[in-house]
């Protein structure tokens, strides 16, 4: 063991904190971007042309913002939103500060996934609810957010897996986590065994996300 993973053993006490930082950022930014993404996704669906609360101005603006943030590579997005990060988190360095670019980078991605999932709902079901006399708000709550939960979970699963990759990137700007460790030790100090173990750990995290996602999809499918 010591022969194959000398550095892993030497720096073993740093792993718990790194794992915890990664999971902390994953959970907090995951929850925040899912809420924000769901909100934007719903607004994109209802304000689009022919939507139940059609509003071309709102749709146009939101659609362009989502496209803009989705087209900026994440590593460039981080310094781009630094001003905003400082304003919200009071600093641009550290775990909390990293949440800002993580949410800004992930929410538009989730918004598109949610939009796609909601648009997959049979328009006939919307028509039936309108014929029943449901108001637009009731349709959002009782139909749009309920009729394609499996599709939404699949979208969130994909987004969470992408988020793990972005958390590794923010590690380089002092947010900590497994990505940060892999760069500092694995890359700069050529400790390949640390990189290897971190890859395995990230693989485990991603597998758990995927398994959980698949499980929830099965539960939500009728």
């Amino acid at each position: 063991m010591a022969a194959y993973f000398p550095n892993v053993i030497m720096y073993a006490d740093e792993f718990p904190q790194a794992i915890w930082d990664t999971i902390y950022m994953l959970v907090i930014s995951g929850i925040l971007s899912t809420i924000l993404g769901l909100l934007i996704g719903v607004i994109l669906v209802v304000t689009r042309r022919g939507g139940i609360m059609e509003n071309r101005v709102v749709f146009w603006i939101l659609d362009k913002i989502v496209n803009l943030f989705r087209s900026i590579p994440f590593i460039i997005l981080v310094p781009t939103v630094a001003v905003l990060t400082r304003w919200i988190a009071g600093s641009t360095i550290g775990r909390e500060a990293a949440l800002v670019p993580l949410v800004i980078g992930t929410a538009p991605f989730i918004a598109r996934q949610m939009e796609t999932a909601i648009l997959e709902i049979d328009p006939g079901i919307l028509e039936a609810s309108q014929a029943m006399g449901l108001s637009p708000w009731e349709i959002i709550g009782k139909v749009l957010l309920r009729e394609n939960v499996p599709g939404m979970i699949r979208g969130i699963t994909i987004s969470m897996i992408a988020l793990v990759g972005q958390i590794a990137i923010v590690g380089t700007i002092g947010a900590g986590g497994l990505g940060d460790m892999a760069i500092r030790y694995g890359l700069y100090r050529s400790m390949g065994d640390i990189t290897f173990v971190i890859i395995v750990l990230i693989l485990v995290i991603i597998s758990i996300i995927q398994l959980l996602g698949d499980f929830l999809v099965t539960k939500a499918t009728h």
Binding site: D122, I125, A128, R146, H222
Partner: peptide
């Protein structure tokens, strides 16, 4: 109102 493809809520 009823429809050709029933339009029931699958969930």
């Amino acid at each position: 109102m009823i429809f050709q493809h029933f339009n029931l809520m699958e969930s």
